[in-house]
Amino acid sequence: MKALTANRLSDGEVVFWKDGTWVERLSEAQVFSDEAGAGEAEASARTQRTVVIDPYLIDLVDSAGFWAPVSYRERIRALGPTNHELHGKQAEGGGAVEALRQAHGAARSSGRVNLIRRK
């Protein structure tokens, strides 16, 4: 399973694709089960150049009934910095946040290299 993520141009906020728009919570993101659908969404997202920067697909795993990124890096993006628990999306708390905190995975985000290049 995959989700599509990016940083929002206006404020750098981590956002996720949902049916042509962007949401801030991974729990509300559109989840793709097929490569074709994910690729189509990514291509569409890349045209939104005044909305987001560098959209890319990430791999997901199931965690306590929620989808969580496989890579540790993407889990931190989806939660916020671990040294400030009141900063970032994790401040809201709740089951989805806890599921992300408990998630495990062992692979890099497929979009990571591209993100580094863009930095």
Binding site: D11, G12, R49, T50, R77, R118
Partner: peptide
């Protein structure tokens, strides 16, 4: 100009970096 779409990110990135503005994981 960047927010209006007159500059692409590739064009804007070196300009913002020259002014100390990076894009990190959660924000600028």
């Amino acid at each position: 100009r960047r927010l209006a779409g007159e500059l692409t990110e590739d064009q804007f990135k070196p300009l913002r970096l020259m002014n100390g503005l990076y894009l990190q994981l959660h924000a600028y």
